[in-house]
């Protein structure tokens, strides 16, 4: 129950930005409808929303500290990783809702132009797994670098970027090793590229690293100094 309340709290705290994106999408579509914008720009709100969500991965954590709401969160009987997991789940679920909205308002143009999303591997199951695992990894990575930077009092932006680069390197190094553990999993057939199979062990390794990072982030959140 407390997790559900935390989820609703995420909507309260960050819902404004979500509505801002919805309003932006409506405005762009209205301008297209009135003929003031070309049909070609229909995907721009989606492109901006990805940028917006990249910021929202780390910004709410920084705002918790700035607005002193982190004290309330820390006083709750929930571990740090649960708070961060709720933040990740809010980001993913709200983005799905936004995507549905964007798709619905642009359905006509999408049908006309044959626009397809970035993932077009020909394997629906693989697309779905990629859409679940990769954003989750992206969110926990940004959370990690954001939390690491909170351990220094100044130049946090630089430390944030630095930690992100190091995490990317560690991921690149660990994924091939971890993949060996999951080689028993069946691979995904890629109909668009005959003879090639997408390695499910790779995805499992990314997911394992994401889960590990979530717990590391939880520890970083619990022991955060300078508050």
């Amino acid at each position: 129950m407390i997790l559900w309340k935390l989820y609703l709290n995420e909507w309260r705290e960050n819902g404004f930005y979500w509505f801002l994106m919805i309003a932006g999408t409506i405005t762009v579509n209205l301008l297209i409808y009135l003929g003031l914008f070309s049909h070609d720009v229909f995907f721009m709100p989606l492109a901006f929303s990805i940028l917006g969500y990249a910021i929202l991965c780390g910004d709410p954590i920084a705002r918790e500290r700035k607005n002193n709401t982190i004290y309330i969160k820390k006083s709750l009987p929930t571990p740090g990783y649960a708070h961060l997991l709720i933040k990740a789940l809010w980001l993913m679920s709200s983005y799905v809702l936004y995507m549905v909205f964007w798709y619905a308002v642009n359905l006509k143009i999408i049908k006309l132009t044959g626009f397809t999303l970035i993932l077009n591997s020909g394997n629906v199951l693989l697309d779905m797994v990629l859409l679940l695992v990769l954003p989750f990894f992206g969110i926990v990575s940004v959370q990690f670098s954001c939390l690491v930077s909170s351990y220094v009092p100044r130049l946090r932006c630089i430390f944030n970027f630095w930690a992100y680069i190091l995490l990317a390197y560690i991921t690149v190094r660990f994924v091939p090793l971890l993949s060996k553990l999951f080689e028993f999993l069946p691979d995904f057939l890629l109909p668009a590229s005959p003879g090639l199979y997408f390695n499910s062990a790779f995805l499992a390794a990314i997911f394992a690293i994401s889960v590990l990072l979530l717990f590391v982030n939880g520890k970083l959140w619990d022991n955060e100094p300078f508050i």
Partner: peptide, 19 residues
């Protein structure tokens, strides 16, 4: 590591499988 080895090659090779 990046100068001496090629970690990105092993990483990209782990994405796809050639039967």
């Amino acid at each position: 590591d990046i100068r001496l080895n090629k970690p990105f090659d092993a990483f990209s090779a782990s994405i796809v499988n050639y039967p």
